[in-house]
């Protein structure tokens, strides 16, 4: 239904990105059409911090332009939590401006990464599903 389909390759790339950035938080955008992700954009966390992220605004502007030109929608925004659970923090909620996008959080707190997806509307958090592979 509302589940987001992420091809395995993109999913693995997302985890790799988060691991590479650790202990800093990684961030990026997943774009596609309908509910199917077709492209992942690694973004620069200009905060370079283990407890916060802010996407490089120039990169964000260029990626949004590219998505528009390619007729893609921003389906998800991902970031990592290097030592806390895969659940939105109060700051994540306060700054969740893009209510149409799914917020994916990759927790690297345990041995294996934990990936969860959420909708954040009017500061209300609802967990949503992701399907790895094709929809």
């Amino acid at each position: 239904m509302d589940n987001l389909a992420i091809p395995e390759k993109i999913y693995e790339e997302l985890i790799r990105h988060c691991r590479e950035e650790a202990p800093y938080e990684a961030c990026g955008i997943l774009a596609g059409r309908g509910r199917e992700v077709t492209v992942a954009y690694r973004m620069t966390n200009t905060d370079r911090s283990s407890v916060s992220y802010i996407m490089d605004s120039g990169e964000q502007f260029r990626v949004m332009k590219e998505m528009r030109a390619e007729n893609l929608s921003m389906l998800a925004i991902y970031h990592s939590h290097s030592s806390s659970p895969a659940y939105p923090s109060s700051k994540d909620v306060s700054l969740a401006f893009y209510e149409d996008a799914v917020y994916i959080i990759v927790s690297l707190a345990g041995e294996e990464p934990v990936v969860k997806a959420f909708r954040i509307n009017n500061r209300e958090i609802t967990e949503t599903g992701i399907i790895i592979g094709r929809a």
Partner: peptide, 17 residues
């Protein structure tokens, strides 16, 4: 272009929504 950001620290006075 609203920023895309988040993190553990609490922020005040954010009311774009």
């Amino acid at each position: 272009v609203p920023a895309i950001a988040g993190g553990v620290f609490t922020v005040n006075s954010v009311s774009l929504q």
